[in-house]
Design a protein around this nucleic acid. Structure first.
Lengths: 264, 264
DNA sequence: CGGCATGATGTTGTGCACAACATAACAAGC
DNA sequence: GCTTGTTATGTTGTGCACAACATCATGCCG
């Protein structure tokens, strides 16, 4: 049991080498969950798919298809879409469709600007107590990260990055701060993967991203081991700022998108 | 025309002495607005009612009543309620009803903690250009504030405070920051009015609140006139922190609620 | 008289049919 | 050939009836 509402574990974690296919809908569960549980499940599934680019920016999400996949009618699906639209990941237009919002580096500059500032607040506002279990979870992430550096693909990287975010976000007990961090994170989560897929030819840059993230995880873990949450905040702040700087640089050097494969 | 999406003006502003009755639903508009416009209108109306305690914490909002008032069916109403629930102002429970969330000083401490930090970011992150029109709007608020100090009631105070917030929030062009500030503001907007209504016997404390807010508006206006948005941020930060401290103190000195009149 | 089962009542959640709307294809006219 | 009006098609938005669920009253039994 042990209510761990902080963790935000996703479904479909099959261990180390999870298949690069689309996120499982988790359907075929007749009634072992209430209406609210089903809502949360569908919401999280779609959110992760959008952020892993399973639903590419600009593509359309037909409500009826989703309804069929999740074995419900359009009504509960629309609830989820309304929330995702409020989060800025979707946009529904009457008579046209619900399309996944496109992401632009310049628009996201403001979000990153904010994330940089908020990163330091974690661990400064209402720091969570650091116990052995928490440290163990950081070590686990670091292990997955070390493994990924040598043989990982961008998608796996994004998954680990997502898990690391949730772990880091659990360092504060300030609920509103956690919510806002989560919202802003998922607004920017796609841009790295999108950039990485575009630059997947130059493996050098990709490797730089991997090792940089590895350093962030290592440094953060060490700070946590010392119980210095403020230091962890500084590490995170620096890495968010640098990460965005690299993304922006990459999108400047590259000219036109020549976008990734279509559902291949 | 001049798209002023920043202002967030509410409907029902009848000038200086607006009636203390409930916020007008703005119904009786057949089709001069699209589906999205209607959604926004209903959403803002309900949000303002909740924050002005027209819908007291703990009270129930029957979907059918709202549907009848706004001349629509339950379906679009539910969309609004879903969003308000995501904002933390409502909570829908299957088979029970949608109840207005109660507000507790201790729970809101975290929100205030965050608002204090974010207040300074306005004007520091992506400051808006200060022109004569903007200064004029600050002067207008100050005039309304001066008038209210002598003959205002707590409800009028809350309205002016709300308008001042929107004006202050327009000092940054960082969209995500504005959204977050708005969300957090409306989560805490009710607590002042609730406390003031409880203490409406001791007019001394109420008057202190009025004059304190008057000073905040005056200081902020002066800072804006000098184009010093950072100073405005410091003023705001200080006043948010002090305001919460007074609210907390008031709720400590008072023992039990002995809650306000019931729809009388 | 107290406790508990059972039905009545009221509310939100769901499913489905239709309306409102936008777009694309197509044909008529210039 | 090009433009334009019209129709066909597909999508989201709305309304309504019913199911799922919780609560309260009632009456039975101990």
């Amino acid at each position: 049991m042990a209510a761990t509402e902080d963790g935000n574990r996703m479904e479909g974690r099959t261990g180390k080498a999870d298949a690069p296919m689309t996120v499982d809908s988790g359907a075929r569960r007749p009634s072992d969950e209430g209406a609210r549980g089903r809502f949360e499940r569908i919401y999280r599934t779609l959110r992760m798919r959008i952020c892993l680019l399973d639903h590419a920016p600009g593509s359309r999400l037909r409500e009826e298809d989703l309804a069929e996949e999740f074995r419900v009618s359009r009504t509960p699906i629309r609830r989820v879409l309304v929330k995702l639209e409020a989060e800025g990941l979707l946009r529904s237009v009457h008579g046209v469709g619900t399309i996944v919002t496109d992401i632009d580096v310049n628009e996201l500059a403001q979000v990153y600007e904010l994330r940089v500032e908020l990163a330091e607040l974690v661990g400064r506002l209402s720091p969570a107590p650091v116990d052995a279990a928490l440290i163990a979870r950081f070590h686990e992430i670091r292990a997955r990260c070390d493994e990924m550096v040598s043989e990982g693909d961008p998608r796996t990287f994004s998954r680990i990055n997502m898990d690391f975010f949730h772990l880091y976000n659990a360092l504060t007990t300030n609920g509103p701060l956690r919510e806002i961090n989560e919202r802003l994170y998922y607004q920017t989560a796609r841009i790295w993967l999108k950039t990485a897929l575009r630059l997947r030819n130059s493996k050098e840059l990709i490797h730089t991203e991997f090792t940089t993230f590895q350093r962030e995880v290592t440094d953060t873990t060490e700070a946590i081991e010392h119980g210095d949450l403020v230091a962890a905040g500084h590490v995170r702040r620096a890495h968010i700022a640098m990460s965005f700087a690299r993304i922006r640089k990459a999108s400047e050097t590259e000219g036109r998108p020549v976008i990734a494969p279509t559902a291949g």
